[in-house]
């Protein structure tokens, strides 16, 4: 775990609310080793999600640099960031954010539309991703026909289908009951341990954080490391 996948150097993020400026992240330095599973905890408004957005190239820092793999995100255009995200990052959201008009299979295929794969290859890869999350038999189901846990599994399959190195999870179990949440977290653990995915997970749930290798606490724009119990 010594190779570094992502480095944030002196990163700060300031939001403007009317005439007032709110500093969400303040001179943040963090290195994320390849293959790590990090949980980020902290109170609301502490900058957890902002940190995730910066790592995923969805937002730009006000100061400092964000480097993920070989890419220095701060210097990339919006279009370059889009292309970069499609192959390097998998996103998992609290509310799954599946497209209701598409089946599970087609939802998982979405990131592959941005590749040169033909329809057959896209279907094959989406099928494999659904098998990994244990939903191979639900491929033709629409999101409305799935439970919350199953929807989140489909979202995870969508996140891993293009084989990104980094998975960014924003409260992935925030909308699930305890038992289902544990299933999802065990799945993330498998993806980390057996498939080598580096995972950064924002959570309010201390039990969820226990599945990570280490936990970072975010408060007032700074991070403090705590080892997993």
């Amino acid at each position: 775990m010594s190779e570094v996948l992502a480095t944030l150097t002196s990163v700060s993020k300031v939001y403007r609310k009317g005439k007032e400026e709110v500093e969400v992240l303040h001179n943040l330095d963090i290195e994320i080793p390849k293959g790590d599973f990090i949980a980020i905890m902290g109170p609301s408004g502490s900058g957890k999600t902002t940190l995730l957005n910066l790592l995923g190239g969805l937002d730009r820092p006000t100061g400092g640099t964000v480097v993920v793999g070989d890419a220095e995100l701060s210097s990339m255009s919006n279009s370059q960031l889009s292309h970069w995200r499609s192959t390097n990052i998998g996103f998992i959201f609290q509310f799954y954010n599946l497209l209701p008009v598409l089946t599970a299979q087609k939802n998982v295929e979405l990131p592959l539309l941005l590749t040169d794969f033909g329809g057959g290859e896209r279907a094959k890869r989406a099928g494999i991703a659904l098998d990994i999350v244990g939903l191979g038999d639900r491929a033709r189901h629409y999101p409305r026909e799935l439970s919350g846990g199953q929807e989140q599994r489909v979202a995870i399959a969508r996140a891993i289908v293009s084989d990104p190195a980094l998975l960014l999870c924003d409260e992935p179990t925030g909308d699930l009951d305890r038992e289902t949440a544990d299933e999802i977290l065990r799945l993330l653990q498998i993806l980390n341990r057996e498939h080598g995915k580096t995972i950064v997970m924002v959570t309010h749930d201390a039990q969820a954080a226990e599945y990570a290798n280490r936990t970072l606490h975010c408060d007032k724009g700074t991070l403090e490391a705590r080892e997993a119990v």
Partner: peptide, 15 residues
Amino acid sequence: IPELAVLKTLGFTDL
């Protein structure tokens, strides 16, 4: 709007 944002998050460009 959220769905369109998800497409962009996945890597669909503005265009």
